[in-house]
Design a protein around this nucleic acid. Structure first.
Length: 822
RNA sequence: GCCCGGGUGGCGGAACGGUAGACGCGGCUGACUUAAAAUCGGCUGUCCCGACGGGCAUGUGGGUUCGAAUCCCACCCCGGGCACCA
């Protein structure tokens, strides 16, 4: 036999392209929008950013998605599993600046590379729905959504802080700021105020928070979103200027400490700072402080350990609880973006205020009793406050003080969020143009929907020179006002690429529609996405923005659901030698050579076998070899068995009538594997243990090869091929076809026969004092008394209870007996 | 500092409160071979023992339980997120 085994050589390089050709030819994975086609589910993997060649992380995420998609298909669902490219963005533009190659060309090249790989990987994609976000046929509708948000007041323009490189004279994206410096020239980045487009995400803060309860996402992702939204409950308390003319509300979570407020602090950006300081003793100093704060690098502001700095304005405000005048300071530890941009400072009970008061010698007052030195941030009874509140526990006093202030409008309960509006303007070329024009007479005008898309023009120079590169395309910028027909200039900022990817999942439902962004019927049938799969790095931004878009579009009547992704799975990274793969570390594993050498099925199955898919996993070449051996064994056994069984070949997957002995053992193992793989797949994503179960089945096939009749062997192997198909589709399909002559993807997912999962006897575990002492065979039907008797009779149990008194016997039917002795 | 994860053999990892270490890698060893590769088989947590068997073992220390990797309390270490958010 041994010398013939080479005839059954597992040759993935022959097998894989052969089945890929069938799937491409027959468009196997395409789904129609015909409602008669049956129950659908939408399995979506986050679309890739096409840059260079796909890496091993792509192989992992699309393998995970593919396994889930195949499993659902085999369970009778029509599965939408589309593919697209997040094709606008900075790397392509930086590449263009460096090489002069148009981003469109480098992007198209990269997309072609991704397409080749995805086909080579055998991923079951519906290619008829492919899209790229830089395609005018796509971004036409990105622009349409922008205009819808504008119409609804959810898109607006205002002066906002941007990262500004003084040397390159350009705005930088956050990603281009490394440690507070420009990534290109190394200059310290400044903050500048420019007119920017924003989306009103803050308006959805509460709903974005609340609706997390309604979706099946990993708890840690929800937690990250909750932290990002940062809801905090407190009170808005109004302080007044001494002349009583101006109100200065502050947000505080600790209105119980109002009697301990000994000064008041405004952010440098607060609009009243310079006016209040005018004519005072510190006017010049304040002016200099504010100017420095405006221009200072962001990193300086955000360093919490930095010593506190500030300047008094020379004016007071009145504390509403006790009429006490307290001095106003300007200090950059107060942020303009949060709350009202001004705070009451309670140095006795807030660490930051305490640090500031210590630097400038400001009074520190204890108003809550508690252990230790000030500052004390804990709970306790009020002291030094007011006869009505002293002695009350601070949590109770908090409510009473706010209620008391509310009586005459000095304060009210309030909620604040950390979430900011989404700044979408980018002074960059390679992005979706913002579809508005500026007319001298009529002002800002949206481009009418029937004139979309506003097509991104070709330009010569991509480098920004203090304005968006688009501003240089004079012919393009010069436009006409849709209202008065007079001359108008186009908006030259482009949109953040996260805008493009905030709605692509909707476009897949109806990707070729040139009358609308989507047909509501098509979206209604497919959305929300049943299972979304992607990297944890998108836990906050992309997932928050997509949720915001969905809610906003629902409010505008374009969608009738609130959440885009009903379930989310985040896969872990593949590392090498315990570190993230990177060219500089030289530890990159490239899918290309890997697939050439072992075939993609080995790579796919190994990536899933390596460990739980949501965890990071370290790559091992030896581990890969092991999985390759396993697939080879599965295939070779199938080929041999199919060949031996040729006379009645085709009986493979049929039930084996009344098996006995080794046949029964193997058939049982096959049913056990069906049950195990099914439970591991069904909502659990335990691909590693599922593959291990198929390995066990193959090990048994191998072991029992000489003693099992052909039908039982065929059944076991066809079952293994069928179960491995979602992970190693080519090998599974080929082995299954060899054994049965049928196409495994057209077969329903196998079902375990419950009778085959039980057996007449089991191994009874016998414990004494919780320690394993013996194992004896027992009938599955045995009752508690019988099991107890069997255990007490077990030789090694008798040895351990000899001379002792049995005080208790715990019986777990079908499992074990534990004997407690004294 | 706050909020999440996670600590199990030489390694990746398995284990509804019920036989700890499935499966794979690595190692040792055997078969086939002139030889190697490939393939197939056996052994492999650790210590004591000739064997039967026994002791010790899931980061550390306690607790609950007939029984704990799993539940509870305290602590240590690693990874991630947020961080002057009033």
């Amino acid at each position: 036999m041994a010398e013939h085994r080479d005839d059954y050589r597992y040759d993935p390089q022959e097998i894989e392209p052969r089945w890929q050709a069938v799937w491409a030819e027959e468009k196997t994975w395409e789904v129609t929008n015909d409602p008669a086609a049956g129950k659908s589910s939408y399995i979506l993997v986050m679309l890739p950013y096409p840059s260079g060649e796909p890496h091993i992380g792509h192989l992992k995420v699309y393998t995970v998605g593919d396994a889930i998609a195949h499993f659902h298909r085999r369970r009778g669902e029509r599965v939408l599993n589309p593919m697209g490219y997040d094709a606008f963005g900075l790397p392509a533009e930086n590449h263009a600046i460096a090489t002069g190659v148009h981003p469109r060309e480098s992007t198209a090249e990269s997309i072609a590379a991704f397409q080749r790989q995805f086909r080579r990987w055998g991923v079951s994609i519906d290619w008829s729905r492919e899209l790229a976000t830089n395609d005018p046929a796509y971004y036409r509708w990105t622009q349409w959504i922008f205009l819808e948000l504008l119409r609804a007041g959810l898109a607006y323009k205002k002066k906002a802080a941007v990262n500004w490189c003084p040397v390159d004279a350009t705005v930088l994206a956050n990603e281009q700021v490394i440690d507070g410096r420009c990534e290109r020239c190394g200059a310290e980045v400044e903050t500048r105020q420019l007119e920017q487009w924003l989306f009103r995400t803050t308006e959805y803060a509460q709903r974005l928070l609340d609706d997390l309860e309604t979706i099946d996402w990993p708890e840690h992702v929800k937690t990250m979103q909750r932290n990002w939204i940062g809801r905090s409950e407190g009170a808005l308390v109004t302080f007044r200027s001494e002349d009583g003319d101006t109100e200065y509300p502050v947000f505080t979570t600790r209105p119980d400490t109002l009697f301990g407020a000994t000064f008041f602090v405004m952010a440098p950006e607060h609009p009243d700072v310079l006016r209040l300081a005018a004519g005072g003793p510190h006017e010049d100093e304040v002016r200099a402080y504010v100017a420095h704060a405006h221009a200072a690098p962001n990193s300086e502001r955000s360093a919490a350990e930095r010593p506190k700095t500030g300047v008094p304005l020379g004016r007071n405000v009145i504390n509403p609880v006790n009429r006490e005048p307290i001095p106003i300071w300007v200090a950059d530890y107060v942020l303009i973006e949060y709350g009202t941009g001004a705070i009451m400072a309670v140095p006795g009970h807030d660490e930051r205020d305490h640090a500031f008061a210590t630097v400038y010698g400001l009074p520190i007052r204890r108003v809550i009793d508690g252990p230790g030195e000030l500052p004390y941030a804990g709970d306790g009874p009020l002291v030094n406050s007011h006869a009505d509140f002293d002695g009350l526990h601070n949590r109770d006093a908090l409510k009473e003080i706010v209620a008391w202030l509310a009586q005459d409008g000095r304060g009210e309960l309030s909620v604040n969020y950390r979430l900011r509006d989404w700044l979408v303007s980018r002074q960059r070329y390679w992005g979706c143009p913002i579809p508005v024009v500026y007319c001298e007479g009529c002002g800002l005008q949206p481009v009418p929907a029937d004139q979309l898309p506003v097509v991104l023009p070709d330009i010569e120079d991509y480098a920004p020179h203090g304005r968006s590169p688009l501003a240089a395309a004079e012919d393009w910028v010069a436009s006409t006002c849709p209202k008065c027909g007079g001359p108008a200039r186009r908006e030259t900022d482009t949109m953040d690429t996260f805008v493009d990817s905030s709605w692509y999942f909707l476009r897949y439902c109806d990707p070729h529609n040139d009358q609308a962004a989507w047909d509501p019927q098509a979206v209604r049938r497919l959305m929300p996405v049943d299972q979304y799969i992607g990297g944890i790095e998108h836990a906050i931004l992309h997932l928050m923005y997509a949720r915001f878009f969905t809610k906003a579009l629902a409010d505008l009547g374009h969608l009738d659901f609130q959440e885009p992704f009903a379930a989310l799975f985040t896969q872990g990274m593949i590392t090498r030698d315990g570190a993230k793969m990177s060219k500089s570390k030289g530890n990159v594993v490239s899918p290309g050579p890997l697939v050439d050498r072992y075939g993609v099925d080995t790579a796919r199955a190994y990536i899933l076998f390596i460990g739980p898919p949501d965890q990071d996993a370290d790559w091992s070449d030896e581990g890969l070899e092991g999985v390759h051996r396993f697939l080879g064994r599965l295939w070779r056994l199938s080929a041999e068995t199919a060949n031996a069984a040729l006379p009645d070949g085709g009986s493979g997957n049929g039930a084996v009538a009344a098996p006995e002995g080794a046949d029964l053992e193997l058939v049982r193992k096959a049913h056990w594997a069906i049950d195990k793989v099914t439970r591991d797949m069904d909502g659990r994503f335990a691909f590693n243990t599922a593959i291990a179960a198929v390995m066990e089945l193959i090990n048994d096939c191998s072991r029992l090869r000489g003693s099992v009749a052909s039908p039982a062997m065929s059944f076991a192997l066809a079952t293994a091929a069928s179960l491995i198909f979602p992970f190693a589709p080519h090998t599974g399909a080929d082995a299954y076809h060899l054994l049965t002559g049928r196409r495994v993807w057209e077969e329903p997912w196998p079902e375990a026969d419950p009778r085959m999962l039980e057996s007449d006897t089991f191994e009874l575990v016998c414990q004494v004092m919780g320690k394993l002492r013996d194992r004896v065979p027992a009938p599955s039907s045995a009752g508690r008394d019988e099991l107890e008797a069997l255990a007490l009779a077990a030789p090694n149990v008798r040895a351990h209870i000899a001379g002792r008194e049995v005080v208790k016997v715990v019986v777990v039917p079908g499992k074990l007996v534990n004997i407690v002795v004294r």
